[in-house]
Simulated scan of single mutants.
Amino acid sequence: MLTVAVLISGAGSNLRALLEAARHPDFPARIVVVGADRDADGLAHAEEFGIPSFSVPFRAFATRDEWGEELGRQLEVWSPDLIVLSGLMRLLPASLVARYSPHIINTHPAYLPEFPGAHGVRDALASGVTETGASVIVVDDGVDSGPILAQERVPVHPGDTEHRLHERIKPVERRLLIDVVRGIATGDIDLKTAS
Rank of each mutant, 00 (worst) to 15 (best):
39 D>V: 10
61 F>Q: 09
175 R>H: 04
71 L>A: 01
58 F>Q: 10
62 A>H: 11
1 M>Q: 08
85 L>H: 09
113 P>R: 06
89 M>L: 15
73 R>T: 13
92 L>E: 05
90 R>Y: 08
108 H>S: 10
67 W>F: 13
110 A>N: 02
100 Y>I: 02
15 L>Q: 01
76 E>M: 03
12 G>Y: 09
54 F>E: 14
157 H>L: 15
53 S>E: 13
19 L>Y: 11
84 V>D: 06
124 A>W: 02
38 R>T: 14
15 L>H: 01
192 K>W: 10
37 D>W: 04
149 L>F: 05
195 S>P: 00
137 I>E: 00
47 E>H: 09
129 V>S: 06
88 L>K: 03
103 H>L: 02
67 W>Q: 05
91 L>K: 08
12 G>M: 10
157 H>V: 06
88 L>D: 03
52 P>C: 12
162 E>S: 02
52 P>G: 11
61 F>E: 12
148 I>A: 02
103 H>I: 01
76 E>Y: 08
43 L>D: 08
30 R>Y: 06
98 A>W: 04
26 D>E: 14
166 H>W: 12
17 A>W: 05
134 A>Y: 02
144 D>F: 02
145 S>R: 04
51 I>C: 12
23 R>P: 00
48 E>C: 00
86 S>T: 05
53 S>M: 11
118 A>H: 03
154 V>Y: 11
86 S>D: 09
171 P>L: 04
132 T>H: 02
77 V>P: 00
125 L>G: 06
36 A>K: 01
84 V>P: 07
181 V>I: 14
186 T>H: 03
19 L>S: 08
154 V>R: 07
185 A>E: 13
157 H>T: 05
111 Y>K: 14
182 R>P: 15
60 A>Q: 15
46 A>W: 09
185 A>Y: 09
162 E>V: 11
56 V>W: 12
77 V>M: 11
47 E>A: 15
152 E>R: 15
160 D>L: 08
84 V>G: 05
176 L>R: 08
52 P>S: 14
121 V>D: 00
150 A>Q: 01
186 T>L: 09
112 L>M: 04
181 V>T: 11
119 H>Q: 15
15 L>A: 03
70 E>V: 13
158 P>M: 01
52 P>N: 12
156 V>W: 01
76 E>T: 14
